[in-house]
Write a protein that binds this DNA or RNA. Structure first.
Length: 508
RNA sequence: GCGGCUAUAGUUUAAUGGUAAAACCUCUGCCUUCCAAGCAGGUGUCGUCGGUUCGAUUCCGACUAGCCGCUCCA
């Protein structure tokens, strides 16, 4: 039924629809746009709000063990020193001037080639399961090529961030195999800086938060002391974060200003963190399916142990199959007690909980599910977008573009349409119904053009239902309307009470 | 940031060294008894800045933005 669309064309079609129907515009468009920033139009704002509301309701309001928080975007600069972002939120990058390839310095390995105890040259290799073997065989062929005699010392892999200045000129580029083309690693901190107060000097530097998580850690004691929470419990937050990405890419997938939904779930230091971690992964997967992402597009990626940050015990990403590839959607990290410990040390304020049974104090450990609102929104749009071949009354095939958004997320839940607009009674009843529905739901009223055109317009906006006030409504007993379903295009008659019941069931 | 390609109406695309065209969308009016009907109208600083030229949307350069790759991640 759905016609197959090429991935890049599919992405272009979605971007085009998003613009045309008022979901997403590029930021500052009249000034030529601004790379990495986007605006959400009337429909996009509704869709995004619905994603936030669904998450907040399911994560906070419908649970007994999680409370909400809204911390400030600009926090004390010491927060980011303690969290490690000032020193560590960087990507050391190395360029090969000849091949124009770019490498992350910590993923590029090298070793001196030592023959009879003397360094005779260098070899390099990219990170893989067999980096050491690659380096070893490179060293052996190096020795062979130079026709050197003597004993080859086994290679000692070091990553490029450890390379001495003198060594950099001697290390061959993995692309060319020749030395002399690699640059020294350049650090690039992804935090946006600003100045607070009237003076703009070093003492006034502050950062736009690169993640919302630190707000939960910094306010941990406040929440514990003021809200009677007991372990295990979580603190959740939705808010904007900012990262000065080198290359924003793939529409809203990677942007410089984005919105996160994060939750820090604090558990006893002796609790079974692995079990808790798995439970949260399952929770997140279930949630994604509940907002309409198909199982077939979801997968898991478990970060290999050796690539984990030193404080992390395990990280699993829930991946989504976007048109441009399988990419990260939701990261669920077991962070141990690293963050609270860091803030306790940096602030001098203990971040501990008292265990009534053991009579001992301890720093709780944490499981962190972190997801981007914009990424969910993009995934939802991609999953919902479909172009169908539909026969018209003469049997000719024409195309119908439809967004199969879940009723929970759809910007408008229902459109109210008088069958024709030059009959006072139809319009009057339609306006009356519209006014009633509007008190509780996002509803759209449309009386322009032929009825079929209005149905299709709503299909593109993702509205799950249309109700049409027709002549049966005003002439026959029962006060019923035509209910037209977006996905099946089927129609049935429905009363006002039944319509409210239908919405109440599907929109929550 | 580096390399390649690109930029014309809200969208998708034409044409042209002499101030631009179509379809769809949108808006107004008429009409319309269930799947993008019809009729009549309305809506456009060729991404920005500079250069060549009598004259640039067209040729050249820079900038900005987009796509693809390197890279990154919520």
């Amino acid at each position: 039924m759905s016609s197959s669309v090429e991935p890049t064309n599919l992405m272009e079609a979605i971007v085009s629809l998003a613009k045309r129907r008022g979901f997403i515009y590029s930021s500052s468009e009249i000034y030529g746009g601004f790379n990495g920033f986007f605006d959400y139009g009337p429909l996009g704002a509704e869709l995004k709000k619905n994603i936030r509301d669904c998450w907040w309701n399911d994560m906070v309001r419908r649970r007994e063990d999680i409370v909400g928080l809204e911390s400030s975007i600009i926090m004390h600069p010491k927060v980011w020193e303690a969290s490690g972002h000032v020193a560590g939120f960087t990507d050391p990058l190395v360029d090969c001037k000849v091949s124009k390839m770019r490498y992350r310095a910590d993923q590029l390995f090298f070793s001196p080639v030592i023959v009879d105890g003397k360094i005779v040259g260098y070899v390099s290799a990219l990170e893989s399961e067999k980096t050491t073997e690659d380096l070893q065989s490179a060293a052996e062929s190096f020795k062979r090529k130079k026709a050197l005699q003597g004993t080859l010392t086994p290679v000692t892999p070091k990553d490029f961030t450890e390379a001495q200045e003198a060594e950099i000129a001697l290390i061959p580029s993995p692309a060319t195999g020749e030395p002399g083309s690699l640059t020294a690693p350049r650090a690039f901190n992804m935090m946006f800086q600003t100045n607070v107060g009237a003076m703009s000097d070093a003492s006034s530097v502050a950062y736009l938060r690169p993640e919302t998580a630190q707000g939960m850690f910094v306010d941990f004691k406040n929440v514990v002391d003021t809200t009677r929470v007991k372990l295990p419990f979580g603190i959740a937050q939705i808010g904007k974060s900012f990262r000065n990405e080198i290359t924003p890419r793939n529409f809203i997938f990677r942007s410089r200003e984005f919105e996160q939904m994060e939750m820090e779930y604090f558990i006893h230091e002796d609790a079974d963190w692995a079990k808790c971690h798995e439970e949260w992964i399952v929770w997140c997967e279930t949630w994604l399916k509940s907002v309409g992402l198909p199982d077939s597009h979801l997968s898991r990626y478990t970060h290999p142990k050796e690539k984990l940050a030193f404080y992390s015990r395990g990280t699993v990403d829930i991946m989504f199959k976007y048109p441009f590839g399988v990419q990260e959607l939701w990261g669920i990290a077991a962070r141990g007690n690293y963050d609270l410990t860091q803030h306790a040390t940096a602030s001098g304020k203990p971040q501990e909980i008292f265990d009534e049974t053991t009579k001992k104090k301890f720093v709780p450990h944490v499981i962190e599910p972190a997801v981007g609102v914009d990424r969910i929104l993009l995934a939802v749009l991609c999953a919902a977008y479909a172009v169908e071949d539909v026969p018209d009354e003469k049997g000719n095939i024409e195309q119908r573009t439809v967004l199969r958004l879940s009723p929970r997320l759809a910007p408008f839940k229902v459109a109210v349409l008088p069958l024709i607009k030059n009959k006072e009674l139809l319009v009057g009843r339609a306006r009356d119904l519209y006014t009633k529905l509007k008190r509780k739901y996002a509803v759209f009223y449309d009386d322009g053009g032929a009825i079929g055109k209005r149905y299709r317009r709503q299909d593109e906006a993702g509205t799950p239902w249309c109700v049409t006030i027709d002549f049966d409504t005003i002439e026959k007993p029962g006060d019923t309307f035509t209910l037209r379903e977006r996905d099946t295009m089927q129609q049935r008659r429905i009363t006002e009470a039944e319509l409210f019941a239908l919405l109440d069931e599907h929109v929550y």
